[in-house]
Write a protein that binds this DNA or RNA. Structure first.
Length: 470
RNA sequence: CGGGCUGUGGCGCAGUUUGGUCAGCGCACCUGCUUUGGGAGCAGGGGGUCGCCGGUUCAAAUCCGGCCAGCCCGACCA
C-alpha cells in the first residue's frame, strides 16, 4: 500500500482528504472564476460513465433527449412566484450583448422548467400528445455562496427531465418510476451507494414543486449527500405557461407535471462514499478503467505480454488499460492506479512470465492472487463481480452502524454528530425540524418505517431521517 | 452575507513577534547515469516583483492602512 503522506487521512481532516483526492487522482481543479471547476480527463471519464448509465435508463423509461437554450428571458423566471423566489438570489444575469444593453436581461439557466414549459405549451394540444417525456443533458449556473468542487459549484453538469401528464396520479407515478428505475437502480447497482428514498419536508422542497422525492447517500464522514431528486410540480407551471389540451370528451384541461435531475455532484458522492486513505475506490460497473495491466519490469517479452493480456481482457468486455511507463518505478505506478481507484491491478513481471501467469490485486483486498495468463480474463471478470458486491456491502454496513433509532430531539442531535437519526415524524414535526436547523441538522427525507417510498409526504406514521448534509 | 483561519515558485510550508547578511526548504519539474516485484538513488539545473494598492523608512515578505482572494463553520442548494 502507499506510504503515509500521500493523502491526508480521513479521520484527521476529511475535507482536506477530499481536496487531496481531487489533486492526486487528477479529478479536477478550481476554475479561475470563484466556484467554477475544471474537470480533468479522469474526472470527466467518471462523469461520462455516469451519463451513459443514467441516459440508458432514462431512455428505457420512455423519455427522449432534447436541448433547450442556455439563455432564458428574465420574465420567464418571474412567472412562477415560488420558483423565482427560490432561485433569484443565485441567478447569473446577462445585461449586455454585442456591446449594447439588452432590452430584456437574460438569465443563464439555473434549471429549465420555465423555458421548457414555454415550449410544452406549444407542443401539447391534445390528450394524444400526452404524456410528453423530455430529458436534457446540460450545464446550469447557480451563484452559490459556498462552492466545493463537484458538490456545489457555480456551474455544474446535469440532466433534467421534464414531463407533462394527463392526471396527477400518472405524474406522481412517473416521478416515482424515475426515482426507482433510473436513479435508485443506477446508484445502488452501478455506483454501489445504498440510498435512502423518501419525500422532502415542505421546508426542503424544490421551489415550485408540490412534492419532492429524493435519494440520500451517506458519506464516509457520516454526512448526507442528496444524490438526486424527482419532483411533482402539480399544475402551477401549466397554469403560468398555459399548457392545456383537449381531453377525450372535448374539454380543456391542464397538464400535471414532473421534473427530475441528477448532477455532477454524484462524482463527489462517489469519492466520499467509497474512498479510503489510499485513494479513490471506483466500483467496477462504473469504472472507466476496470483493470490496469502493469508491466513490472522492462524484461524480455513483458510489455508484449501485457498488451496481449489487455487485448484478451477487452475481448471479454473488460475496460482494460496497459501501464508500460517503464521509466517510472513500479511503486509509483502502482500507487497512481490505487489513488485513481482502479478496481483490479494485473501485474506481469519476468517471474510471472516464466510461470505463464499474472498477479491480480484487488483495490479493496489485501491478498494478491495468481492466475494463469489464459485464465486471467475469466479470473479478472469474477474478481470484478466480487469487488462490486463488496463495495456495496461495505457502504451499506457503514450506513447501518451510523444510523440510530431515536425518540427525542436531543437524541437526534447526538446521533447526527456521527451519522443519521431516525425519528417518527409525528414526534418531530415542522417545529422540531426548525429546532434542528439551528444546529445545521436537517430532515433528509420522510419515508415509511420499512424504508419504502410513501404515497405522499402526508402519509401517516412516517419516519424522518435526520442528519448533517453537504 | 456573519464568525474563525490563511495568502511566500505547480503543491505543501519556514521566515513576519525583534525591518538589513532573506528569496529558503520538502515534493513536483528538466538533463545525465544507475535503477524498476509498493511512491528509487546520485549529480547537475530551471522556476517566485513574498495576494494587490498605498504609506512609514536609508532599507519592507517583515511595520501601518485599505482592498482582494482562498479555506473551515453557518444561512442556500443538484
Amino acid at each position: 500500500m502507499a506510504k503515509r503522506g500521500v493523502l491526508t487521512p480521513q479521520h484527521e481532516d476529511f475535507p482536506r482528504w477530499y481536496q487531496d483526492i481531487l489533486n492526486k487522482a487528477e479529478l479536477a481543479d478550481n476554475g479561475p472564476v470563484r466556484g467554477t471547476m475544471v474537470i480533468r480527463p479522469y474526472g470527466y471519464a467518471l462523469w461520462e460513465r455516469m451519463q451513459a448509465e443514467v441516459d440508458q435508463r432514462i431512455k428505457a423509461a420512455g423519455a427522449d433527449n432534447a436541448y433547450f437554450p442556455l439563455f432564458i428571458p428574465e420574465s420567464y423566471l418571474n412567472r412562477e412566484s415560488d420558483h423565482v423566489e427560490g432561485f433569484s438570489p443565485e441567478l447569473a444575469v446577462v445585461t449586455q450583448g454585442g456591446g449594447r444593453e439588452l432590452a430584456e436581461p437574460v438569465v443563464v439557466r439555473p434549471t429549465s422548467e420555465t423555458i421548457i414549459n414555454a415550449y410544452f405549451s406549444k407542443w401539447v394540444q391534445s390528450h394524444r400528445d400526452l404524456p410528453l417525456l423530455i430529458n436534457q443533458w446540460a450545464n446550469v449556473v447557480r451563484w452559490e455562496m459556498r462552492p466545493r468542487i463537484f458538490l456545489r459549484t457555480t456551474e455544474f453538469l446535469w440532466q433534467e427531465g421534464h414531463t407533462a401528464h394527463a392526471t396527477r396520479q400518472e405524474a406522481r407515478d412517473y416521478a416515482a418510476q424515475i426515482l426507482h428505475d433510473v436513479y435508485q437502480d443506477f446508484m445502488e447497482s452501478v455506483l454501489a451507494i445504498p440510498v435512502l428514498i423518501g419525500y422532502k419536508t415542505e421546508a426542503e422542497r424544490f421551489p415550485g414543486a408540490i412534492n419532492s422525492m429524493c435519494l440520500e447517500g451517506m458519506m464516509r464522514d457520516g454526512k448526507a449527500l442528496q444524490m438526486g431528486t424527482s419532483h411533482e410540480l402539480g399544475q402551477s407551471f401549466a397554469a403560468m405557461f398555459d399548457i392545456t389540451y383537449l381531453d377525450p370528451e372535448g374539454n380543456q384541461a391542464q397538464v400535471w407535471q414532473t421534473s427530475w435531475g441528477v448532477s455532477s455532484r454524484m462524482v463527489g458522492g462517489l469519492i466520499m462514499a467509497h474512498g479510503d486513505d489510499h485513494g479513490l475506490v471506483v466500483p467496477p460497473r462504473l469504472a472507466p478503467v476496470q483493470a490496469v495491466v502493469i508491466a513490472v519490469r522492462d524484461a524480455d517479452g513483458v510489455v508484449d505480454a501485457c498488451h496481449r493480456l489487455a487485448d484478451a481482457l477487452a475481448a471479454d468486455g473488460i475496460r482494460a488499460r496497459v501501464d508500460d511507463r517503464m521509466g517510472t518505478g513500479f511503486g509509483r505506478r502502482a500507487t497512481d492506479w490505487e489513488l485513481k481507484g482502479v478496481p483490479v491491478r494485473v501485474e506481469i513481471g519476468p517471474r510471472d512470465l516464466e510461470q505463464d501467469q499474472a498477479t491480480l490485486v484487488s483495490r479493496i483486498g489485501e491478498d494478491k492472487q495468481i492466475a494463469s495468463l489464459s485464465e486471467a480474463p475469466k479470473s479478472v471478470g469474477s474478481l470484478l463481480d466480487v469487488i462490486q458486491q463488496r463495495i456495496f456491502n461495505d457502504a451499506a454496513a457503514w450506513r447501518e452502524t451510523h444510523t440510530a433509532e431515536v425518540a427525542t430531539i436531543a437524541e437526534v442531535m447526538e446521533a447526527a454528530a456521527t451519522g443519521f437519526a431516525r425519528i417518527p415524524w409525528g414526534k418531530l414535526g415542522p417545529e422540531g425540524e426548525a429546532v434542528l436547523a439551528e444546529d445545521a441538522v436537517t430532515v433528509r427525507c420522510l419515508q415509511r418505517a420499512d424504508g419504502s417510498l410513501p404515497e405522499s409526504g402526508d402519509e401517516l406514521d412516517l419516519v424522518a431521517v435526520c442528519g448533517r448534509s453537504y
